[in-house]
Computed example of a mutant assay.
Amino acid sequence: MSDNIKFIHLTASAEPRHFGARLDQVLAELFSDYSRSRLKEWIQQGKVSVDDDVCTVPRQKLKGDEKIEINAELVQEVYHQAEDIDINVVFEDEHILVINKPRDVVVHPGAGNTSGTLLNALLSHVPGIEQIPRAGIVHRLDKDTTGLMVVAKSLLAQNALVEQLQSREMGREYEAICYGTMVAGGTVDAPIGRHPTKRTLMAVRELAKPAVTHYRVIEKFRAFTHLRLKLDTGRTHQIRVHMAHIKHPLVGDPAYGGRTRLPKGADEEFITCLRSFNRQALHAAQLSFFHPESGEWLTFQAPLPEDFQKLLIAVRQDSETHGIDEL
Rank of each mutant, 00 (worst) to 15 (best):
R194C: 09
H248C: 03
Y174K: 03
A176E: 02
R59T: 15
R22L: 01
S294G: 04
F31C: 03
E92V: 14
R36V: 06
L156I: 11
G193V: 01
V106E: 03
T114C: 09
N4C: 13
L207D: 05
L262D: 00
R172H: 04
D253A: 02
Y215I: 09
R17L: 08
Y174P: 00
L74H: 13
I129F: 12
G258D: 02
D65V: 15
S2T: 13
I192F: 02
H125F: 10
E41I: 04
E77W: 14
S13G: 10
S167W: 07
H125Q: 14
E83V: 03
E77Y: 14
P305W: 05
R103D: 06
I96W: 09
D318H: 03
R172C: 05
D144Y: 09
D51C: 11
K47S: 08
H291Y: 09
G252P: 05
Q45S: 13
E296L: 13
G252H: 02
N88E: 12
R259I: 05
V57S: 02
I70F: 08
A284P: 13
L23G: 00
L155Y: 11
T145M: 11
D232L: 12
D232T: 13
I324P: 05
E69I: 09
D3K: 12
F290L: 14
Y179H: 10
A152G: 02
Q131Y: 03
G136E: 06
F308K: 02
H245R: 13
S294I: 13
V188A: 00
A190L: 04
T200M: 12
K247W: 09
K63P: 00
V151Q: 04
L123N: 07
L39V: 07
L97A: 07
L123F: 02
A28F: 00
A176H: 08
K310S: 13
D325Y: 15
V315D: 02
A314M: 10
L62V: 09
S37E: 03
H242V: 10
E269M: 08
G185F: 03
H248I: 06
E268F: 14
Y215M: 11
E268G: 08
L27I: 10
E77H: 14
N88R: 13
K47G: 07
L74V: 04
L274V: 03
I132V: 13
I5G: 00
Q44I: 14
T114I: 07
R316T: 14
S32Q: 08
H245I: 06
V89Q: 12
H291C: 08
R194F: 03
I8Q: 01
P292S: 04
N100V: 05
I87V: 15
R240M: 01
G185Y: 06
V126C: 14
D51G: 05
I68A: 06
L155M: 11
Y34Q: 02
V251D: 05
T236P: 06
V204L: 04
R316Q: 14
T11E: 15
G128R: 11
A157R: 04
Q60D: 06
S167N: 15
H108L: 07
Q309H: 10
F289K: 11
I218D: 05
Y174Q: 07
I218K: 13
E219M: 13
R140C: 02
E69V: 11
I87N: 05
S124N: 15
A21H: 12
G147I: 01
V78N: 11
T233R: 06
Q131P: 03
R194I: 05
T236K: 13
P303N: 13
S167D: 15
G112Q: 08
